[in-house]
Design a protein around this nucleic acid. Structure first.
Lengths: 342, 342
DNA sequence: GACACGACGGAAACCGTTTCCCACCCTATC
DNA sequence: GATAGGGTGGGAAACGGTTTCCGTCGTGTC
């Protein structure tokens, strides 16, 4: 069905095969407002089929001045948080006939700047930034790149706390964490330790603030905020230290800034010979799939990650966009890792 | 630092700003064998910096006739198996200065064919197929697309069982599963049920065959092979059915075709009021990160997924390639989900 | 001081598409 | 029966680059 040719068939080849001009072939094969006679249309389509023609997207992009690409920047694609998010982005892109290119920051701000610059070369329609947002000196370089990107006509979407002028698909980290704190204080917890990412990372800061607020207002108190990273191993290490340092009294709650961190904490607690739940309670944030399958189940705040990615994709592609769209509903999910106390 | 312009700065703009020809600007900014005088070079670089110039990759691709893109096709990016694989691909691509575009098959063969065709439009240097390979009628259409892709000068790499002419980065599924079977029989297990994907999926078939072989040779016997899917929910459902149907005797081993499936099985076992480990043993394959953090830990076969992705990337880009490169080492990892029996 | 040669800048052709614009034909109208 | 007008095909100029080829200039040699 597909004729083997040297290299890919070009529109030229199709036009010649069909005995029509390039213009006509182009109009038939790639959308155009203009009509072409049925007889021509058939000839061109037959020729294209015969030669296995597929439009060269690069050439199309240069000619049209706009590409069908959306770029996605994540911290770590192996992290289930970003995986689920990426799934939503990919689904939306497919529906819209777009292609997703992905890049990994490895949580390195400098790398992030470099990647945004490199991605800019593709002239994507939109850029989705899902890597954690930083405040501080490194933010300036990134902002410069983002501005350059926007000045070029690309749309920048930030997943999480909206920065400046960019569109953002926000998660109510603060509110969700506050609700979690309130709920857990309601279960009888009074003493909590928070294992967070380093200061300046908005997502982490907001969750810490929200939790402290909610937990405090309902009668609990946060004894300590331990700063570490966003990974499972960071959570494991932090909890191990905490257990070794001064020990952790039974009945204490440890809030991990994300489920991934919380899962690391759970493993550390167990490896130290303690028990998760009645002894040391653990809670997380995000509700990644794994939280359902570990025992005890992980108490957390459900963030509809795939929806989030789906929305981000649309924010990145639609011409006009309503920032105040119904916010994503977060929901506290209590499982066995935080049994009722007393 | 970056001057805001209407649209992106072009090479034209840079050349004008620097007072040189396009040719010279091109030679300075985008690699060329020819040298250009230091004074010119500086002027051009300064102009590029001032204008925030970034080469238009699409234009470059059409002019050069070759793109800097590698396409990655996975079944489901939210699945940790594919996430870790993708991480390796992305790392390799970054090192090589390539861009990764990703597409999701959702395990639908027709969709897969459609995506390969769409991806072809990008004229990627290589295409990495990590979605599970099927045998059967749907395979023909896919093969046609792959041939068309290869005929165009693209390199196709299959992750897993090598198909026909394509390069493949193989995993010794059969050998690994056999080793697992042997090991488990050595621990005293005699009776096993396998929860696999539907017949015709090579990865699954190979693992079933290998396990049956190894387990059988060491004195065990596979009582039943249950066909289902590759997901956590498929594993959960299958195990729930098995437990309801005839019940499962204590001391039985359930081998899930992948860790994701095995984790679903573990949850089903527990939700049925049974215990994982001493009561019903469970084993998986792949060694995804989660397997470490659940309790009991999941016995499995470690597949170095990130390496696998990294290798696939190289196989997809390097001109000549040694198929017989040292195969990836698989390793049986015994954890608490399969305690020694007797 | 003439000549050959190597280095290097610039004009122009080209990559695969889109799209503007013109020519053409057919039909409807006076 | 000439003319205006709408619809449709084709030629050619873009789009943003790369690369070939040519011409000039500076240098080294005898």
């Amino acid at each position: 069905m597909i004729a083997p040719t040297r290299g890919a068939a070009t529109l030229h080849d199709v036009a010649r095969e069909a005995g029509v001009s390039l213009a006509t072939a182009s109009r038939v094969l790639n959308g155009s407002t203009r009509k072409v006679a049925e007889s021509y249309r058939e000839r061109v389509e037959a020729a294209a089929e015969k030669l296995g023609y597929t439009a060269n997207l690069s050439a199309q992009a240069t000619a049209r001045g706009t590409s069908a690409i959306v770029a996605l920047l994540v911290a770590d694609i192996a992290d289930p948080y970003f995986g689920q998010l990426a799934a939503g982005v990919a689904r939306g892109a497919d529906e819209a006939g777009l292609v997703v290119t992905i890049a990994i920051t490895e949580r390195d701000p400098q790398r992030e700047v470099r990647l945004v610059r490199a991605l800019r070369g593709q002239r994507p329609r939109g850029l989705i930034l899902a890597a954690s947002r930083v405040e501080g000196p490194d933010a300036a370089g990134l902002q410069g790149e983002l501005d350059a990107f926007a000045g070029m006509g690309g749309r920048v979407v930030v997943v999480g706390p909206g920065g400046g002028t960019e569109r953002s698909v926000a998660v109510d980290n603060r509110g969700g964490a506050a609700a979690l704190g309130t709920e857990l204080a309601g279960l009888g917890y009074r003493d909590a330790i928070v294992v967070a990412a380093s200061e300046g990372i908005r997502t982490s800061d907001d969750r810490v603030a929200g939790f402290t607020e909610g937990f405090g207002a309902a009668g609990g108190s946060v004894r300590e905020v331990r700063r570490t990273g966003f990974t499972r191993d960071a959570g494991y290490a932090a909890a191990t230290e905490l257990l070794a340092d001064g020990g952790i009294a039974p009945g204490t709650l440890i809030f991990g800034i994300s489920d991934v961190v919380a899962i690391g904490i759970m493993s550390a607690v167990r490896d130290a010979g303690r028990q998760v739940g009645g002894d040391i309670a653990v809670a997380g944030f995000d509700d990644i799939a794994t939280g359902r399958d570990i025992r005890p189940g992980l108490t957390t705040v459900r963030v509809p990650l795939e929806d989030l990615g789906y929305r981000a994709l649309h924010a990145a592609t639609e011409p006009e966009w309503d920032a105040a769209e119904a916010p994503l509903a977060l929901e506290v999910v209590v499982r066995g890792s935080t049994p009722p106390r007393s």
